[in-house]
Design a protein around this nucleic acid. Structure first.
Lengths: 282, 282
DNA sequence: CAACCGAAGCATAAATTATTGACCGGCATT
DNA sequence: AATGCCGGTCAATAATTTATGCTTCGGTTG
């Protein structure tokens, strides 16, 4: 039970001095943090031993114990009241706001991608990893995330072909077949060349997975499986940050799912991580 | 700020004994309630004074202050995590946990980089953007973020030279001079070639900014300004995700600061964004 | 190799907390 | 009304806990 509730409930059966202590604690609980039993006694003009006896009567081990408990109680209470206040009066200009916006974008993105889809994508990639190839492409800023994800898949022992120009990718794809997977990253999903590549890949009976904004876009209509990202902001220099965070988060989730998908991919990953560690820190 | 997050974030630059204290506190935070500094010391087989000094180094008034703060943190966590546990078990297995871990890493990273440093870095880059060049290098996975940041600086109209191999970068740097800035990305900060480049750059009177893990590492000692990243997880496939999230968050914050730094960089950015938009969606 | 720096422990001072015993006033019993 | 009991309070002090000064030791720098 909260120490404050307990104090209040017993207040009526207390002696005069005890009641004064009780009142002080109830009204200035937050000050208690910086008060020793002696200081509290001074503040009330009573003896320190009275304070200690007071705490013991209430069932606490002693003064520090009461103090600690009151601290917990305040923390619990502050926790449900203060956040609204804190976010409203956030002095810390951009940093914390940015953080909140990113969280929102990430959460929104998590919500619009059904677990089944994620599961299906993970399985498709895993399958391609066992018996085929994974092709990955992204242009411009999208390339950065394509590159990153490609690297991670490689670490899992999945054969990955990464390109950042359409010509090479077209050439590479000519060896694709059933059981292979193409991952296309395109924020707006309306780059004609990517559309052509996706179509070509489908003709060769490969599975197309797109990662785009959550809009109706040409690329997405070509997909066997479509992952989507949600991120919006009025400020033009903020929006890309949100998009990238949300995208990254989506990919992170996918990656974790792959890692935890059993198999011996886990072991493979560890081995690869170790090997890389050695390479980078000679 | 949560004392536990703070402890975790500084864990890396602690001595052996301090790290043992940190680990104990992180893992047995609830037990702390019944431990005096002496008991804690006994439990770890170290001296009581080490415990007290540990708390003071972290910025607490003393051991009781730490204890009280940890108590608050636990109370807060118990209060909002229990409800979250319910949401976590509604199907979305790993996603929500991952999200929380990422948030923690981002928060810890925000805490260990003083606003002054961030400000100074932003100004250094802005200055170099007006009258000099910004060199950026990162190897392996670090390259991904180096590349991303380089792209963003370009959008702001800042002349940026990005490389992902040491040979080219060395060559490029030979034209560097005072007023230029070198940004080095290196998670562990102990790649000899990067150290050489940084030293060489300093000789040419340029300003070196490093971005590394929050550890004592050779590269960091060469920096005029050092940004640091905190991210930890036992799972080897999670930790990189956290590192990258935290790093990205740090860079996002920096970028926003640059965007909001006045000047006409803002206008420049808008123009560039438009132009790129046209290029990518013909 | 000397000088230095920081980390850790020991011893001890300082502080905080808990207990003891004395005193006082109210109140019931004689 | 006197006596004895009892809860409450406090000052003094014991016990515990925390903080600090000093020393040593291992590693680093010049």
């Amino acid at each position: 039970m909260s120490p404050l509730v307990k104090i209040r409930s017993e207040r009526d059966q207390m002696s005069a001095v005890e009641r004064r202590i009780a009142d002080f604690v109830l009204e200035n609980a937050q000050l208690l943090r910086d008060y020793s039993s002696q200081q509290l006694a001074n503040a009330l003009g009573i003896s320190q031993s009275s304070v200690v006896k007071f705490t013991q009567k209430l069932g606490f081990k002693g003064y520090p114990d009461l103090k600690y408990s009151v601290g917990e109680a305040i923390a619990r209470a502050d926790n449900s009241d203060a956040p609204q206040l804190a976010t409203a009066s956030d002095g810390d200009a951009g940093g914390s706001t940015l953080w909140r916006r990113k969280s929102e974008a990430e959460e929104a993105t998590r919500l619009i991608n059904p677990p089944e889809t994620l599961q299906a994508v993970a399985e498709a990639i895993a399958l391609a990893g066992r018996s085929g190839k994974v092709f990955i492409i992204g242009l411009g800023e999208d390339d950065i995330y394509a590159r990153n994800f490609a690297l991670r898949l490689s670490l899992l022992g999945i054969l990955t072909v990464h390109n950042f120009d359409t010509a090479r990718m077209t050439a590479n794809i000519s060896v694709a077949g059933a059981g292979d997977v193409l991952l296309v990253f395109s924020e707006h999903g309306n780059h004609p060349a990517l559309g052509k590549i996706a179509r070509y890949f489908r003709e060769r009976r490969g599975q197309v997975i797109t990662v785009t904004r959550h809009t109706a876009n040409p690329l997405r209509t070509l997909a066997d499986l479509a992952l989507v990202v949600s991120a919006h902001d009025e400020l033009p220099y903020i929006q890309p940050l949100l998009y990238q965070s949300a995208l990254q988060h989506l990919l992170d989730g996918l990656f974790v799912q792959l890692c935890e998908g059993g198999d011996d991919r886990h072991a493979q990953l560890l081995a690869n991580l170790d090997r890389i560690q050695l390479m980078l820190e000679p």
